[in-house]
Design a binder for these strands. Structure first.
Lengths: 282, 282
DNA sequence: AAATTCGTGTAAAAAATTTACAAGAATTAG
DNA sequence: CTAATTCTTGTAAATTTTTTACACGAATTT
């Protein structure tokens, strides 16, 4: 039993359930949190059915029994904490919206983690390792991601740059050599200027790795598309969790490159760390 | 019973436990995953103690009984998936280290979420809302965080800037007015140049909000310290999850400010969004 | 060295879950 | 439209699982 999608499974199974079992399903979907502290008799009473019906319901959704079901549900709820209602609302207290921001971020990360295509990541790491230059392009909120990436890869002894200015991007793109890599980062996946830059990169023989929503123009035009779909809290109109998902993807690439570079890199990083120590107060 | 820290609680309680109970604790800490599918008799057998001892152990760590304990453990494990061994190792496949990067990031976020001081966040939001200017200072990896924050708050109609150059920081700091806010972001919490800038800010009558490790010089010298402790994967020497935690904190502040600014801000954001649409391909 | 406290297991009781079965509702075929 | 069959649901019993009560042995203190 994989807990990741239990509530989903329940919803899917709903039409195939019998009338009384559906009563159980309704209650479960409405009060998943409560359920964790309930015994089978309580649930039977609340849903106005008999205990065996509850067991039959649990079996119907793929669990071995009631305990198994409860455990699976508990796990799912713990994994995506504010399941169902992560949008921040007017009346939220500071504690509430703080939790919601973190929870929705975690939620996004869990979703993205599952949806990443491993082969694409491998190709991307391989491309970065063989490139002479690696550049990161992004606008708006993705600019910060690009600079973060530049900083990270620079530390890994990769000649890297980050540009959030379309002119600089274009100038740099035309000077790339065959095999060089550009990582195009976009939350919308449809920023025109970025698409233009990508075109120039490809003309120069460069490889474009895109971190963008699946099926978006930027993902489609890339040599290697790492598709990241992060639903945003629309009401706020400021990208919240998706750029964090992008950063996590960058981290994965960085780790991949670090692994490929092997042990001599460790020494380099060690030295860097020691160098930085002198800039710090004791 | 808060599941967030059960294994931690077990470790903490360890010295206070009796010999046979400790056997149970050892087994639990070593095989937390397995335990979820075990009954009390199985655990008793594996740990080579009697069943009542297991129950006593559960009570000792603050749970109501064995079931309660199992549930709490299941929740914690679901929340921090690769609990215990998130460090990336040589032999990891791409799939494995990808998961580990995401999991450790999630782990960090969960920990930070619990440790944040709500009152500090409230003070910080209040200070930002009343300030005429808000600036973000950070070096290295925190520079990207600073720029991200600048971008975010700029969208919220806050006059904001971000500097990752100590000279620019100092120049800007001296020109601040009373009540203006500087957010100092640091992963080490001991960058000398940043401490110097903070001093200038305070001399100019500005408020310094620090996002830094607890107890660090930067946290101690700040007007409002938002303490973020994110353990890093030391082997890689490149900040991984802590900057993501910092970004999440920035998000929380941004949401707080957005809420305080109220509905007229929504219209502004809507307009911004529409403006950006023209830069995108259809 | 004796007494008391503490720790642990055995065995019995209680609680909870699951199975077996039967009664009633619904549906379909005659 | 009625009868038969199938499907649905609950009652009650059986089983499993957990918890409590108690007693014995070890350890510690006076």
């Amino acid at each position: 039993m994989k807990p990741a999608e239990l509530t989903q499974t329940i919803s899917d199974t709903l039409p195939a359930l019998r009338k009384s079992e559906r009563k159980v399903a309704d209650f479960v979907l409405k009060n998943p949190m409560q359920l964790i502290r309930m015994r089978i008799v309580d649930l039977a009473q609340e849903a106005e059915v008999s205990e065996p019906t509850v067991v039959r319901f649990c079996r119907a959704v793929g669990c071995h029994g009631f305990q198994d079901f409860k455990l699976a549900l508990a796990q799912q709820l713990a994994a995506s904490p504010s399941y169902g209602q992560i949008a921040v609302t007017e009346g939220d207290s500071t504690r509430e919206y703080t939790h919601k921001v973190f929870d929705s971020t975690i939620d996004t990360l869990l979703k993205v983690r599952e949806s990443l295509e491993i082969e694409r990541l491998d190709s991307a790491v391989a491309a970065i390792c063989t490139a002479e230059r690696v550049e990161f392009y992004g606008f708006g909120a993705s600019a910060a991601v690009a600079f973060d990436a530049q900083h990270k890869f620079f530390r890994l002894q990769i000649t890297s740059a980050a540009y959030s200015d379309p002119h600089l991007q274009n100038m740099s793109a035309t000077s790339l050599h065959s095999g060089d890599v550009v990582v195009a980062i976009s939350q919308s996946g449809r920023t025109r200027a970025l698409i233009d830059s990508m075109e120039l990169v490809k003309q120069a023989g460069g490889i474009v790795i895109a971190i963008a929503p699946s099926g978006s123009p930027i993902a489609r035009n890339a040599s290697i598309a790492i598709e990241v779909d992060a639903k945003e809290d629309i009401k706020i109109y400021t990208p919240l969790s998706s750029r964090i998902a992008h950063l996590a993807v960058i981290d994965v690439l960085a780790i991949g490159v670090a692994k490929k570079k092997g042990p001599q890199l460790q020494q380099h990083l060690q030295k860097l760390q020691e160098g930085l120590a002198s800039l710090r107060s004791p």
